[in-house]
Amino acid sequence: MKSFGYTITKDRQIDYDANDRRLIEYVEGIEPSIRICMECGSCSATCTAGHFTDFSIRRLHTLLQRGETLHLRKEIEKCMLCGKCQLVCPRGVNLRNLILIIHQALDKLHHDL
């Protein structure tokens, strides 16, 4: 393959139809409370990890909903499982469990993520 001194950029657009949504289906099956998130961001605002890394549990959850699971395994390692997010969530989403189930799902589904 030739090189012309520039490369073809990967499209940033979320291609919902092409994305693999098995992970979110698995997670939602076990922890249906994640459905009721209203994306307020309280969780991320208080997140211990989010103050020192670019971890955002709110955004991670939204990306998961869209089937965007790239770097997910690495991403959830940043969570310290302190449970503050869950404490502040106005709708009582079981966020701690979300992280735990993602761990479980990644192993179970043998995702290469």
Partner: peptide, 12 residues
Amino acid sequence: EDTLTGLPLKMK
């Protein structure tokens, strides 16, 4: 634009 992820999105 999926403004909560900051990414453009397409779907059928």
